[in-house]
Design a protein around this nucleic acid. Structure first.
Lengths: 263, 263
DNA sequence: CGCTAGGTTGAATACGCTCAAAGATCGTGG
DNA sequence: CCACGATCTTTGAGCGTATTCAACCTAGCG
């Protein structure tokens, strides 16, 4: 494995999209780059529609998605299904594998998905030796926490119409952060059935809800490419605040505070 | 501050209930005990019904609940409210304060609440110097992740009747872990209105749902003390699997795996 | 070109909501 | 210690959003 990750480093295009986006790669120390390379050493592409992790499986690996979509879900006895969250490029699947012996909720791919696979034990090394990367990891966890909180609010207290608008906005913004949007549109590889299972609706009503959004000229869908035509109006409808997606203390700020503590 | 936390140590009754329950206190190294004491140095009691953290507040502190109940929630424009999760004794409020500059969702107390307050920066020290405590912290995060996933499944795909049964079971088991149950009953300091806001129901329907559970002799409520009369039946109704609450790799196991890696 | 999964539409039904008002309980101050 | 007000709980009735069931249409893929 390459050891010296210098300016023109071997952390290629295939690496965690978020690190790239946040401009962290430029400022990585050799040790940080080294650890990242180690954690991204093993890669794999999984075909679409495959179950990546099954409930009650033993947790052996963590994954970072670099391309494609996956989702975490639970199957219920009556045949219905609830999607808990989506994994988009940059997201970590099974971030708690180190301390949870078994998979609590299944994970499946939506599109073809490319992941970096690493042993959860590397996380110990990450936290112990590379605090900046540890903070970055923690930030990812915080973001997922917020994302799940939004999902709870969405399905707990919003109408179908609002839920749909809200979810579409969230997906749009998350994809935008990692550069997978094109103007106001993005590739949405999900079926309406999956959207329904995400928003706690029936397929029929999901269909009618999307129909209404199209009718009102808020969105446009053609062969899984969706355009958010009137984002402002969608935000109004959904009562959307995407603040949680952007906010992150700069590492500089955190380091400053840590200094204060030590004094 | 006391430095040697020996067998009869100064980590008193008022310390994190979970650590006590898991029998960790006995096996703490002096350094671990020291850090814990530092993090639990500042304590505070907050009256019931107070807002502890407001949305958009700047994150200054983390809290560990030692007594009482709190909850995280979001107020919507139309006056409705959605509860995201509950904080019971042993739980961490604002675990991601270190990396999130602002509070995304408000936190309020249900009963009178006693908390330990610590600066988020101590977490850096915790992860860097006390890996076992770091793992414990990670486990707490994993448990909350599961808890929120359950909340999503609950309100996404279950009937009011199932939701109620499921939530009561979860609260029961979480309280049991930290020793706040009494046989099959526990003190439930919430109003039906709050339960409704938790489960995405109207107060009226919440009331009728509880009525039905009482009618069918599954629960009994008298002045905020609730008894789960037929737990097995409740589990059937709710399709309840509490597995995520118990599972945690023993620290011994994790340490063993870490050894393997280093070789 | 045909098959299958996904999308669309209609009609009847139901679960949970809203509005409204009457009880019960709790906390507080007189 | 009791009375009062406020909050919480309970009950009734009508309504609406979303569901179910069923059928048909469409598009993508072998």
């Amino acid at each position: 494995m390459e050891n010296n990750a210098s300016q023109d480093n071997p952390l290629t295009d295939d690496l965690p999209p978020l690190l790239r986006k946040f401009g962290y790669l430029q400022s990585l120390s050799p040790e940080e780059a080294d650890l990242l390379l180690k954690m991204h050493a093993s890669k794999k592409t999984i075909a679409k529609g495959k179950v990546l992790l099954r409930q009650d499986d033993i947790h052996k690996y963590c994954f970072i998605v670099t391309h494609g979509w996956a989702y975490r879900y639970s199957d219920l006895y009556d045949g219905s299904r609830q999607v808990i969250n989506y994994y988009l490029p940059g997201d970590i699947i099974s971030p708690f594998a180190l301390v949870m012996p078994r998979v609590n909720y299944a994970v499946a791919t939506i599109s073809s998905v490319r992941v970096s696979i690493y042993k959860p034990e590397y996380l110990m090394e990450l936290f112990a030796t590379q605090p900046r990367l540890g903070l970055f990891y923690a930030w990812m966890l915080g973001r997922e926490d917020s994302s799940m909180a939004e999902q709870i609010i969405r399905i707990g207290r919003r109408s179908a119409y609002q839920r749909a608008a809200h979810l579409l906005l969230e997906l749009y913004h998350r994809l935008k952060i990692v550069g997978f949007t094109d103007h106001r549109s993005f590739y949405l590889p999900v079926t309406q059935s999956l959207l329904a299972d995400t928003l706690g609706l029936s397929v029929v009503h999901m269909n009618r809800t999307l129909y209404r959004l199209r009718l009102e000229n808020l969105i446009k869908i053609r062969s899984h490419k969706i355009s958010l035509i009137n984002i402002d109006r969608l935000k109004e409808i959904a009562e959307y605040k995407g603040t949680y997606l952007e906010q992150m203390k700069s590492l500089y700020e955190i380091e400053k505070e840590l200094q204060k503590i030590k004094e």
